[in-house]
């Protein structure tokens, strides 16, 4: 690293040694020409996201609840139809 005049880090040998440890591996990626809005939308939709059901999958009760939820939903809808039409 280049030393500058009145460098506030000049006397901070330990800090500089720590900062020097932080190397970045630069991946190989090309320059892109102008991106269209469609490209941006596809990139956004294709980016990995957090699974909203992950917390449920981690516990036995959560998995059981996930399995039973569709049955409960169907039963609820059936009862609702009975109440409306009969």
């Amino acid at each position: 690293m280049k030393h500058k005049q009145q460098d506030p880090l000049e006397k901070e040998r330990f800090l500089r040694s720590k900062l020097d440890e932080y190397h970045v591996d630069v991946p190989d990626f090309p320059m892109k020409s102008e991106k269209t809005k469609g490209d941006r939308l596809i990139a956004f939709l294709a980016s990995p996201t957090e699974n909203p059901l992950e917390k449920l999958i981690l516990t036995v009760n959560g998995v059981t609840m996930l399995k039973l939820a569709p049955i409960g939903l169907v039963m609820g809808l059936t009862i609702l139809q009975f109440l409306i039409f009969f």
């Binding site: 006397k11 901070e12 040998r13 330990f14 800090l15 720590k18």
Partner: peptide
């Protein structure tokens, strides 16, 4: 944050 030995500073 680093909490190291900064005696030389």
């Amino acid at each position: 944050l680093l909490g190291g030995d900064f005696l030389e500073a």
